[in-house]
């Protein structure tokens, strides 16, 4: 079996704040195979974006990737590379697409210059060749009249166009992996559809792997072959997309699916997850989802659940895997009991 393209192994990224140590990413392991699109879903504060930034070592103080973490990519451990070597990986073998295209682009350079710069840095192209490459990339991502658009500034483009430029920039060096951190969250739904279609098309044509970070289960369902669900700094469930949506195992995943109003859905009332995510400085002992969970029992308070194997390629961090009969007896979660405030 060939090793995966990217393998994150036991990643811990902590932030040393005035309020204590925030264990934002607390032992995350996941992998991305060549040509695959993997979704990482979770809500604010679950650690998904910090995980993405950790891959390229873009964590700045007070944040720190802890010893014992490993991120293997194309046979190298990214965490042990020197500064020069990691810069060779950034933008070249692994590229990032961020949520807010306006802040990802430099307002004082034309979009063509910015794309060309990547080609000049990593491929040592001449100015002229790099500009030609930039125009080619703009055409690839479906920007009309790229010869003119290349000489425009970011503020002259719409949000959707800017995100296409950012994607063009990410793809210049034909990277093996693109990390897309909420690439469509800032965009309108019709523009989001355009961008997602573009990403899917590019992976088909170029064979690029994508790690898609999002809070939107709809985006995951339509674009990813495999899903990793994160909660409170940990992976709580991982499965192929059809498997996860058809047979969610972790109560948090179940809750997320139920809380999403669906077009075409008929539910009178949305299922909710009571309470809020605990602060990352004080993750509870035992299961971190316990207080919000309708199945929690005493074992969940004391024993931190490991990732149980549910089925082939399906793991879940929930003791229900060991005692499945308890699923038949849901109760009021602690966070929903009287006197305890909902979020």
């Amino acid at each position: 079996m060939t090793p995966p393209l990217l393998e994150i192994d036991n990643l811990h990224t902590f932030f040393y704040t005035d309020n204590g140590v925030a264990r934002s990413v607390d032992g995350v392991s996941l992998h991305v195979d060549a040509g695959e699109t993997v979704g990482v879903v979770g809500e604010s504060g679950c650690g998904k974006s910090v995980t993405a930034l950790s891959i390229l070592r873009l964590i700045r103080p007070p944040g720190r990737i802890e010893a014992g973490s490993a991120i293997r990519f194309e046979g190298k451990d990214l965490l042990t590379l020197d500064d020069k070597a990691i810069r060779q990986v950034r933008g070249n073998r692994i590229a990032m697409v961020f949520q807010e295209p306006m802040t990802a682009l430099n307002p004082v350079f034309t979009v063509g210059d910015q794309i060309a710069e990547v080609a000049r840095i990593h491929a040592g192209m001449s100015k002229r060749d790099a500009m030609a490459k930039a125009i080619e990339m703009l055409r690839l991502v479906g920007i009309p009249a790229p010869e003119q658009r290349a000489y425009e500034y970011p503020h002259q483009l719409s949000g959707g166009m800017r995100q296409r430029v950012v994607i063009a920039m990410a793809l210049v060096m034909n990277p093996a992996l693109v990390i897309a951190d909420e690439p469509t969250t800032a965009l309108d739904v019709t523009i989001q559809a355009q961008i997602l279609e573009l990403l899917a098309d590019l992976t088909r044509r170029l064979g690029t792997s994508i790690l898609l970070i999002t809070h939107d289960l709809g985006v995951v369902a339509e674009n990813c072959s495999r899903v990793v669900v994160m909660y409170a700094g940990e992976v709580v469930e991982e499965a192929t997309t059809p498997d996860l949506f058809a047979h969610p195992h972790h109560p948090y995943t179940e809750g997320l699916l139920g809380a999403m109003p669906k077009v075409g859905g008929t539910a009178e009332r949305l299922a909710t997850i009571p309470g809020t995510v605990p602060p990352p400085t004080v993750w509870p002992a035992g299961c971190r989802f316990r207080e919000r969970c309708a199945y929690a029992w005493d074992r969940c308070a004391t024993e931190h659940p490991p990732l149980y194997q549910i089925a082939e390629g399906h793991v879940s961090r929930c003791h229900l895997a060991a005692e499945p009969e308890r699923r038949a007896h849901p109760h009021q979660p602690i966070a929903a009991q009287p006197g305890v405030t909902a979020a």
Partner: peptide, 14 residues
């Protein structure tokens, strides 16, 4: 002013 915990420690987890 530190925001409440759902954005702590920094607003990185969009």
């Amino acid at each position: 002013l530190l925001p409440a915990h759902d954005d702590a420690p920094i607003r990185m987890n969009g």
